[in-house]
Design a protein around this nucleic acid. Sequence first.
DNA 1: AGCTTGTTTTGGATCGATCTAATCTGTTGG
DNA 2: CCAACAGATTAGATCGATCCAAAACAAGCT
Lengths: 339, 339
Amino acid sequence: MRSTVTDVGARRQATLGDVAAQASVSRATVSLVLRQSPLVAVSTRERVEEAIAAVGYVYNRGAARLRTGLSGTIGVIVPEITNPFYADLTAGIDETLDAAGRLAFLANSNESPQRQERFVRRVKEQGADGVILCAAVGTSPALIAQLRTWRLPCVQILRAVKGAEGDFVGPDFRAGIATVIRHFVARGHTRIALLPSSKQTSAAQDRVDAFASSMVEHGLAPGLVRACDAAPEAIAAEVGRLLEGSDPPTAFACHNDLMALDAAKEITRRGLKLGSAVSVIGFDDIPEASRAVPRLSSVATFPNTIGRRAANLLLRRIGSPSSTYERFLIEPQLIVRQT
Amino acid sequence: MRSTVTDVGARRQATLGDVAAQASVSRATVSLVLRQSPLVAVSTRERVEEAIAAVGYVYNRGAARLRTGLSGTIGVIVPEITNPFYADLTAGIDETLDAAGRLAFLANSNESPQRQERFVRRVKEQGADGVILCAAVGTSPALIAQLRTWRLPCVQILRAVKGAEGDFVGPDFRAGIATVIRHFVARGHTRIALLPSSKQTSAAQDRVDAFASSMVEHGLAPGLVRACDAAPEAIAAEVGRLLEGSDPPTAFACHNDLMALDAAKEITRRGLKLGSAVSVIGFDDIPEASRAVPRLSSVATFPNTIGRRAANLLLRRIGSPSSTYERFLIEPQLIVRQT
DNA sequence: AGCTTGTTTTGGATCGATCTAATCTGTTGG
DNA sequence: CCAACAGATTAGATCGATCCAAAACAAGCT
């Protein structure tokens, strides 16, 4: 009663109780107003809203979560935030969560399962409502099982942890490889090499599998598969070995654009003409691909879309934890440029 | 007493109380153990730790925060997460916070002050202990003032909001420009152009100011300053206009590497030889700079370091909110390559 | 007036931790 | 034997919201 707006100097943050006092209603009523309940009379609602503004009240979602069990937060764990692909992905997630009024914890596992485990635990401690996880190389299925016993909804993206099923969103790498091989064959290539990442992920394995069956499908001899570290020197060396071998390949399907760019560089350095003598295609269609000379052909994988889909799926799953798992494969698109 | 470890099927998450019951001690004691208090006897501590493992207890930081007022979280708001510079920065922040046992909310304002404001409010609602903010273009000083009245510590990075002082960490753009001009002059250039971003930020203004005083310092006529949108076409057009003008510049200092790469492309397209006839230098030293042909000279600005410094400063500020503001300018480094 | 019925409002318990001050235990010294 | 004290443990209040069941109020109908 006595307390008025002039108590601004007060060090303490305004709470529901302060608003209630200011508006001469009960705390319960203020709570109803905050949650847009249709129960409160319009006149009271207005009075309460004025009071909220007057005392400078800010909702304390942490306190609410204690009661409701819902925090309005999501954990996002990626293995390599500095990779432009993940940055795009993150932007897509961020956008969707923003629209849903939620906030994301972002953590960079840096491909370390230990660090990843630490993050998962912290995210759980903070009471996040769910997790979007791109599992680090070497992730144990036990981690996913852990999330399950915690009843913490989880959507895996890009890489599926072996031995742990669940919701999943990622590019259809198999379809992508199939398209690339079809393209190469149409152009007359018969000696084709695949350079998958040497990281042991489902994303790499998918490429290898699809490559093998595609080659068979087109009646070609099994192509050359050379798992390759992402370092520029490693790629140059591998490309060199292939080109110096007997019956060298004339087309290279690379794990991603960064690797493809380095491969292209080495091929050019050796005096071969890209686009005519030799073809190179990467994955992801990063901005650099179209800027390079010659402009790199690439399989676009739409990270932003994947991020949005994953976030939407997670939100749905949080709403209905019991329904059966979903699996979204985003159709990639071959962008033919000069290589 | 009756309840044993076998209640695993229970839907409810284990709480402090469950651990206490399991270990036959009080909740207060368990709490002390969790916080590594030296008060508890070693034998009890061990008993409690066993109980924690037995019931599968996970700390509820949200509940703790209600009492302590500390959440162990930090808000990070950047204007453009897909820019590799910010990705690196984020990685630096993430690393530092990880070491400090904290978790970051990451939000992408996308240069929208409205969105940024929404995020700031959400971060506050979630009870974050502090904020690292790279202010969107057009941010009002009122936002910083708001944070201040909320007593939410804030470290600004890269761009300082005009009219709002506070803690700051960013590259020393002035020093960077000075180095570039010195380098150009040493190479014999006298007609120099500056292409700052057309975004109205302190980061752009710093470059403009430093450019002007550098030119004077070397006894040169004021150079050409052309604020420029980041779109490749806009840059090509601007570079074209400059080159076709009377007495065209022979050296270009660009706002960042992405712009510099596009400028370089246009210069090459016009048949001018980069590195001899014309020089181009960008900022940030993104990976693409060293991969481009010709290899782009650039001013490295060390985003990862900036991220770490900012995070460390924020952690210190959370520890002692009242001490005076600090301002860290990270010395950039000119990397001379082929342009 | 008394009785429904429907709409608003509310007191008090509750979520899961921490904090404070008090209690309990065991030891030591007078 | 008791007072004093240090060390270890605890009961109960508390943080700021939500939930529930009950109360207050208003309007309409006998």
